[in-house]
Design a protein around this nucleic acid. Structure first.
Lengths: 194, 194
DNA sequence: TGGTAGCTTGACGCCATGTCAAGTGAGAAT
DNA sequence: ATTCTCACTTGACATGGCGTCAAGCTACCA
């Protein structure tokens, strides 16, 4: 796929590394230097900073094989198992895309293209939430106080990147604590009592 | 307090109006035009964009009298009542500061001063969360799976501005739906079962 | 009459993104 | 060996924010 071009790969890896380390304020010149090419040469491969960031996320999806990870949750038999598997899969993916996610979210405020790209990816997460909620509803486990749309929104919000950042980075939770708490919280939020 | 200077007030009100309407990308020149003065004159009143935004939040706190609103939750007798009152008070304050909050959060990525100011305000919210959690614990209502710190972090996360934005703006929830769901969710998340 | 406070206009430096033009060097094609 | 082409380099430049500076205007005050 995107592995054709070696320079392109160097750029994407350099950008990814920098984004994971530094804040979201990485400049094009930083990426160029880290990739060992001139700043202008970046524009031979990516038309803009936004598209470079988007390409980094796609590159990560490939390298980390997010599809395979989510497959497990799709194969779960019960609704509860599907919910738990989805939370684990996505919750464990967030730390790996944390850097790019921050940069893309920061850019989304000012750049329509970045915004569209981020929204698109979050829509995919929402699909996963919706599928888990539907499975719960099918099993009759969904809290009657919630319709499926409302429940999906709620789960999507609980699994949002900003909340992950707040709990893990601001509050200093470990990844294990985050996952455990999210599993517990999602269960309490969505499941019928009893 | 800050009401001394009429031009200063004009600036703060203009900035506030613009921030509530437009995105977080309001420029100094926009604010100046809306306030009816020159761009350079802004700097006679505020040393930087960051400090202007911070001043807007303080100005809002004064105008909207956030202290009085929170007083109600402090006067609640039971822990549950205190929790409910705090969620209502803060949850109803968010829409009023939404614009400035967005701008300040966007700026926090790149500007240390903006970041410090925002963190400071969020710390105050955390205090409120901690007080509610402590009241619950005192009543023996806190879920034994949670210690007070963990519970406070959780409540703080649930009441975070990004989550409000996602549910209300991205998902299109009404303010009433947001409040109702938060009340329900906070109860489920924090209270002992039964 | 003179001073001062608060504003205006116009120009400038800084810094990031993105563009353009001219060159260089290695490898392929002939 | 010559030529062509591709990927890159260097250097310069436009654009558009923020923030600063200098000089001038005006209304009010002593």
């Amino acid at each position: 796929m995107s592995s054709e071009n070696p320079t392109r790969r160097k750029i994407l890896n350099a950008a990814w590394t920098l984004l994971e380390q530094g804040g979201s304020q990485i400049r094009m010149s930083d990426i160029a230097r880290a990739a060992g090419i001139s700043r202008q040469a970046l524009y031979l491969h990516f038309p803009s900073r936004a598209e470079l960031l988007v390409a980094v996320t796609r590159h990560l999806d490939e390298e980390k094989d997010i599809d395979a990870r989510l497959a497990e949750s799709r194969n779960a038999t019960t609704g509860q198992a599907r919910l738990a598997a989805f939370i684990a899969a996505w919750g464990n993916y967030i730390p790996e895309i944390r850097g790019v996610a921050r940069a893309l979210m920061a850019m989304a405020d000012s750049d329509a293209e970045a915004r569209a790209a981020w929204d698109d990816r979050m829509d995919a997460v929402r699909q996963g939430c919706a599928a888990a909620v539907t499975a719960l509803a099918r099993d009759g486990q969904l809290d009657p106080a919630l319709d499926e749309g409302r429940a999906t929104d709620l789960l999507w919000g609980l699994l949002s990147v900003p909340l992950w950042i707040q709990l893990r980075e601001t509050c200093g939770w470990s990844q294990e604590a985050y996952l455990a708490e999210m599993q517990r919280l999602a269960g309490r939020a969505l499941l019928a009592e009893g």
